[in-house]
Design a protein around this nucleic acid. Structure first.
Length: 508
RNA sequence: GGUCCGUUCGUCUAGCUGGCCCAGGACGCUAGGUUUUCAUCCUAGAAAUCAGGGGUUCGAAUCCCCUACGGACUACCA
């Protein structure tokens, strides 16, 4: 019988979610939606020491911005509530006890300090220490101590942890959906702590218990979890839950664009791109890390960019809406190797989304920027302007650079253009053009254009020579959209004013 | 150190069941065209001895082995 697909995204609230995590959430979401399954948000906050205020809210908010929706979770509730592990705390102990009872786990009384000491000693001898099959016999635990001794320590409230008793000789097989069959021998694995002395379970225990209780069908997570997957498989076996053990898919890592290694928090602002979906301010240091949203990326673009970092549809289509991704996605087409973030390609994606927007939409995004600069303009006119320039930019924030001359008379003129185009007779020709413009009754692009072109031709002049200089005095630079469209937008009087001003200032 | 995972143009990648691959697409780059200019757009081009070496085979980027390199993990963190 086919099991209902239930996947979970399970971040720990230790800070902002970085794009690697966002991609994991995205792949989980795409898979769930495609299979008609459920997407669950579970907060894994079993480490009380690493709790960061605001992180949980950040995760919820930034994923919402990106359009990744949850069917169940801390913020929306659901039939398997609670969805925050700290709220599930009373639940875990019985499972640890069950493991002890069945001989799959044991009490360990070694203090962190004593273990640290042993580690140091081993390091000095260039050996690695592991709490495992071979070393556990020489340590303080319920395997080496007498039953009375253990009971006494427990009664005296000695701090202890519960460790998994890894079998001595067993091949553990993981059938990873992305990597295929991975086999690890149990004797190489250590006796991981399942239950901490502070009364909280570790990730390993909580994760398995919750996935089982929440009936998770697929665990899609980052590659960094692959080494502990054998332990997780063993835990399912120890609990007798093998029949309903979820399928595993370990995603390739997101690498830093320069050099090698996992993309980290610091890389982003160092290399000029955000690593977080939305801006984050560290509550302790006040340090601000930039986000895609604040940097001007559209959520649709971020989704598209992230989807293609480690996955591709096998066709040449690159632009995908969320719905299209849900249709096309497949775990089989996820690559095995890590992907580097490419800033240029990211910009290109944003540009593609920006140009799909109408002038009206862009005008509404741009209006607040203009208001802040004290510039007043009708929205309809602004929409026309936005439509005119939208193919020249990747981000909304670049609009001002491309349009400022529509609102402000140029104060400076591009030196390069002056040097290249401005000749002795330029002023006199421009003066003639002022006269021509003055005669235009109904101020229209076409009429103005035709008359100026006629003047150029009648006088045997070169188009470029005149047009470029005219552009220079109108715009202040040698670039921009169609000149006569600009002239028609800024109006006859302003155009004439600018030409006259330009002639005066440049001829100095 | 140990375990595991990975390795095709600068980057993301196609290539999965071997021949259609002296390796295709996209971003970026270069050149040309369009344009009054820039951008867009169009066309063309440079760019991977498929990490290296051995096999298997009539034939390998594709299968096998070894080596190298890279990465992840190796906490009472997730």
């Amino acid at each position: 019988m086919e099991r209902k697909v239930r996947v979970r995204f399970a971040p720990s609230p230790t800070g902002p979610l970085h794009i690697g995590g966002v991609r994991t959430a995205l792949y989980n979401y795409l898979f769930a939606r495609q299979m008609g399954g459920s997407m669950i948000l579970r907060i894994e906050d079993t480490d009380q020491g690493r709790f960061v205020p605001g992180a949980e809210e950040y995760i919820i908010e930034s994923l919402a911005w990106l359009g990744i929706q949850f069917d169940e979770g801390v913020h929306v509730g659901g039939p398997y509530a609670p969805y925050r592990q700290s709220d599930r705390k009373p639940l875990y102990r019985q499972y640890a006890d069950q493991l002890i009872k069945d001989g799959w786990a044991y009490y360990a009384f070694d203090t962190p300090e004593s273990l640290e000491e042993i580690r140091k000693q081993h390091e000095a001898e260039k050996k690695a220490f592991q709490y495992d099959v071979t070393s556990r016999n020489g340590l303080q635990n319920s395997l080496t101590l007498s039953k009375e001794g253990v009971n006494q320590l427990l009664e005296e409230n000695h701090p202890y942890v519960i460790r998994f008793k890894m079998p001595e000789d067993e091949d553990i097989v993981i059938n990873d959906l992305i990597r295929g069959r991975v086999v690890v021998h149990s004797k190489l694995l250590d006796d991981k702590v399942l239950f901490k002395s502070d009364g909280m379970p570790t990730y390993h225990l909580a994760n398995i218990v919750d996935d089982h209780l929440m009936e998770i069908s697929h665990v899609i997570r980052g590659e960094e979890w692959l080494p502990s997957a054998p332990l997780h498989v063993m835990l399912y076996k120890a609990f007798g839950w093998e029949a309903t053990m979820p399928e595993f898919a370990h995603l390739p890592l997101l690498l830093k664009p320069d050099g090698n290694g996992k993309l980290s928090k610091r890389d982003g602002d160092r290399l000029g791109f955000p690593v977080f979906p939305t801006q984050w301010q560290d509550p302790k240091t006040g340090e601000i890390s930039s986000g895609y949203r604040e940097s001007g990326y559209f959520p649709e673009a971020v989704i598209n960019i992230l989807a293609f970092l480690g996955w591709n549809p096998g066709t040449t289509q690159e632009m995908f809406s969320m719905d299209e991704l849900i249709q096309a996605f497949s775990l089989e087409r996820i690559s095995k190797s890590g992907a580097k973030f490419d800033l240029e390609k990211a910009k290109w994606f944003n540009q593609q989304y920006l140009r799909q927007l109408s002038g009206d939409v862009l005008a509404n995004l741009f209006m607040p920027v203009l208001s802040e600069k004290g510039i007043k303009v009708e929205i309809a006119k602004l929409a026309i302007i936005c439509d005119l320039v939208k193919e020249r930019l990747s981000f909304v924030k670049e609009l001002w650079d491309q349009t400022s001359f529509f609102f402000l008379t140029p104060e400076m003129y591009d030196e390069q253009v002056i040097k290249k185009r401005w000749k002795e007779d330029t002023s006199s020709h421009l003066l003639k053009i002022v006269q021509i413009l003055d005669t235009v009754q109904v101020f229209e692009t076409i009429t103005a254009h035709d008359k100026v072109v006629a003047y150029i031709q009648d006088n045997g002049l070169n188009m470029g020579q005149i047009m470029n200089c005219l552009r220079l005095v109108i715009v202040g630079a040698g670039t921009g959209p169609d000149l006569f469209t600009i002239i028609s937008i800024i109006g006859k009087d302003e155009s004439i004013k600018r030409i006259t001003k330009g002639i005066n200032e440049i001829n100095l």
